[in-house]
Simulated scan of single mutants.
Amino acid sequence: MTLSWLYMPMLKWKRGERDALRYLKEDQWEGVTPMLELQPIGAAPDTPSLKTALPAYVDEVSEQINKSVPALQAACIDTGYLSSNYAKQVSLLLATCRGLTKRLEHQVVPVIRSTWLETLGSLTTTQIAVLSEFEEVILRLRTDEMDPSQVQPGVDALAKFVKKRRVHLVLDQFSLVDRDPDACVTAVTPYLHAALSAGCASVTLAGGAFPVNLTGKRQGFTDLPRVEWQIWQKIQKDAAFGALRYADYTVTNPAPLPEDLDPKAVNPSIAIRYAADGCWRLYKGRGFKGAPRGELRNLCKLLVSDDVYSGEKYCYGDAKYHKDANGGEKNGVPWTWRRDATNHHIVFTADALLT
C-alpha cells in the first residue's frame, strides 16, 4: 500500500527531536511521517571502518526509533550526514536501511539524494536486489542545486532501478531564511509542475526558514516568519497543486549540524521557539551559562499569557511550558528546549494541515 502523509517533519535526529516524537500521542501521529537525518557515525570514511562501525550504530538507531516512533509507523531514513565524505553514499544508505529493516517492525523508507543518482550505475547486482526489497523510496531533490528541467531526468535515472509508482518526490527548497514568500512561489512553481507530471507516487514540498542561530535577536519576544508555511499557504490557493504534501525542518535550520562543535565553547541563549500561524514567536533570554535561575520560568510565563499559546492540554510541549511557568527555577538544557518546541511545532502544523 502506498504511503500517504500530509506532513513530513524533517528531523536532525538528536535527542530533542527524538523525544519530541516520543511524546506525541497516538492520535497526533495522524497524517505524520517523519524523515530522520541520521547523525555522523564517528568512523573514518572508508569501507573497512564503516563496515566495522555500522552494526553497533544501526543497533543504537534501532533502539532510538523503537522508543520514539510507534511500531508499524513508517520512518524515512536519510544517511547523507552519516559519513558525508564516503564515496559510496547509496551503498551506505542501503546497508543502513537493510540493517534497520531487520531490527524493526517499522516500514523503513530509504531517502536517495539527487546528487547520488549518477552513482546508481555502479551498484552491484546484490545492492540492486536490496533496493528492490523496499516497497517505497524517496527521491530528495534540492531546488537550489538544480533546474526544473532536471527533475524529469532525475526521476528517469532512478526509475531504471525503482518503478515510478514506488517513488515519492521531495522538492526541498532548503534554507528560506529571510526570503520573500512571493518570490519563492514564483521560483518553485516550475519545479512543482515538473514534479507533478513525472508520474511518481507523490510530491512533497519542503523547506525551512528558522535561523542557524539566535545571534542578533533581541531578548524578549520577536516574531520570525515561517516562510516555508507562507509559501505553502499561497501555493494551496492554486487547485493545480491540491495533491501536494508538506514538509519542513520544524524549529531547526536546514543546514547540517557542525561535526566539530565543542559544547563548552558555545553559550546558547535560553529560548522558546513557538510555532504559530505564519511565524515562530521567539522568546529569548540570556545565555545559558551564567543565566540566573528562573530565566526559563520567566520566558514560559510570557508564553502562557500570550494569545498564541495553545493551552496546557494541547500537546506534551505545551504542558511542559505550563509546568515550567508555574514551577521551580531550573532552566533546562538545550535539548529539552528543542524537545518541547519541536513537539508543539509538529502537532500544530499537522493540525493546520488536517483542517
Results as ranks from 00 to 15, higher is better:
17 E>V: 10
301 K>W: 02
213 N>V: 06
119 T>G: 01
296 L>V: 03
226 R>E: 01
109 V>Q: 04
77 I>W: 03
351 D>F: 00
206 A>K: 02
156 D>G: 09
223 D>K: 08
338 R>H: 04
23 Y>M: 04
241 F>E: 11
46 D>W: 03
39 Q>R: 13
133 E>M: 12
45 P>T: 06
12 K>I: 11
31 G>S: 06
183 A>D: 15
320 K>L: 13
165 R>S: 14
139 L>P: 11
100 L>P: 11
296 L>D: 02
187 A>I: 00
7 Y>M: 12
166 R>H: 15
175 S>Y: 02
197 S>R: 09
53 A>S: 14
126 T>F: 00
184 C>D: 11
244 L>C: 10
142 R>C: 11
27 D>W: 03
265 A>L: 08
90 V>F: 02
241 F>M: 12
239 A>R: 11
42 G>W: 01
251 V>F: 09
343 N>W: 02
77 I>H: 12
285 G>L: 07
174 F>S: 10
55 P>Y: 09
231 I>N: 03
197 S>E: 14
40 P>S: 05
318 D>P: 01
178 D>M: 01
49 S>M: 08
284 K>M: 12
44 A>V: 01
300 C>F: 03
97 C>A: 15
75 A>K: 01
137 V>Q: 08
352 A>T: 10
239 A>N: 05
49 S>E: 10
142 R>K: 13
274 Y>N: 07
273 R>Y: 02
191 Y>Q: 05
209 A>F: 03
177 V>D: 07
14 K>F: 01
78 D>N: 15
51 K>M: 09
26 E>D: 15
258 P>A: 12
237 K>F: 07
153 P>L: 12
168 H>L: 05
221 F>P: 02
264 K>V: 13
316 Y>N: 12
39 Q>F: 00
27 D>N: 14
329 E>Y: 06
225 P>M: 01
298 N>D: 10
86 Y>W: 11
117 L>P: 04
152 Q>C: 04
272 I>P: 03
2 T>L: 15
206 A>V: 08
157 A>E: 15
42 G>F: 06
106 H>W: 07
193 H>M: 00
326 N>A: 12
241 F>G: 12
44 A>Y: 07
28 Q>V: 13
203 V>G: 08
87 A>I: 04
45 P>V: 12
153 P>Q: 10
285 G>A: 09
276 A>S: 09
199 G>K: 02
21 L>K: 06
74 A>R: 02
224 L>E: 13
